[in-house]
């Protein structure tokens, strides 16, 4: 008989280190919670407040619905035109940001910079900026959506470009085609399905984003929502929230359908 063999996943030293790490993590979380400045009496009151709010929103003021048609159309238009503009701007950015099509390092760096700027500023902040630049309304909203989307679209699009079959492009190059012709004839046909998928996906996101743009004056249904909240018209707020939910569901279904068809 041999003695039973001992086995430990961790050495005693490792176990001590892991315990310390957990204690440290717990301390950090506790400190963060303390810094939140939670007013516990308000939190305790929250269920009553929710009940009260829902009570005031219900039933929604259905008669107000006709007044929402125009803001709703604006919202869809902001998202759609914004997406279209973003895709148009994304094409050159993506070609510069893909390693296999970029003309030079400078263009590559610039395109990557454009992507980072676009993606690091939220749509609402873009909207605030454009409300100042072009005044309140749907134009500001559309530009904000476009600026925010360029980074997203061109990033995914550039990734698609990097995955194309080089052989097909080489064959076009061998005929004596120019750089531009290579892109149009050898690259673009290969990435078209990716492009279509990304467009539809981003359009879906933009529908949701453009519902809040009105909060900062950039047009659409968010504008009506803001007015109703400021005017304490809670049953209107209820109606608007229902309408937004409906639009998002419809756009999601539409994009799922279109994405299925695009491939």
């Amino acid at each position: 008989m041999t003695a039973p063999r001992a086995w430990r996943r961790f050495t005693p030293g490792q176990t001590a280190a892991r315990t310390l790490a957990r204690l440290g993590l717990a301390a950090v979380v506790a400190w963060m919670l303390a810094r939140l400045g939670v007013r516990w009496e308000w939190v305790a009151d929250a269920p009553t407040q929710i009940g009260d709010l829902l009570g005031r929103m219900f039933p929604p003021e259905w008669a107000f619905a006709p007044a929402l048609v125009d803001p709703l159309i604006q919202t869809v238009n902001i998202a759609t035109l914004g997406t279209a503009l973003a895709v148009f701007l994304s094409l050159p950015v993506a070609f510069c940001a893909a390693l296999n099509t970029t003309p030079n390092r400078g263009a590559y760096a610039l395109a990557r910079f454009v992507m980072v700027v676009s993606r690091s500023v939220d749509t609402l902040i873009w909207a605030l900026i454009f409300v100042i630049v072009v005044g309140p309304g749907s134009l500001a909203g559309m530009l904000a959506v476009a600026m925010r989307s360029v980074g997203f679209v061109s990033k995914l699009f550039a990734e698609g470009i990097e995955e194309i079959d080089r052989g097909q492009v080489e064959a076009v190059a061998a005929t004596g085609a120019t750089r531009g012709q290579l892109l149009v004839y050898g690259v673009l046909p290969q990435v078209r399905p990716v492009l279509a998928g990304v467009c539809i996906y981003r359009w879906d996101i933009n529908i949701r984003e453009s519902t809040v743009l009105g909060l900062v004056g950039a047009g659409g249904i968010g504008f009506a929502l803001n007015e109703a909240i400021l005017g304490l018209e809670w049953s209107r707020v209820g109606l608007i929230l229902v309408v937004i939910l409906g639009v998002v569901i419809v756009s999601e279904a539409a994009s799922a359908y279109l994405r299925g068809r695009a491939t």
Binding site: Q168, V172, Y185, G186, P189
Partner: peptide, 18 residues
Amino acid sequence: NLVERLTVMENVLSGRLG
């Protein structure tokens, strides 16, 4: 090395791109 998603005619005509 045909451009797979293009038609036969487009592929043949790519020989005239120059």
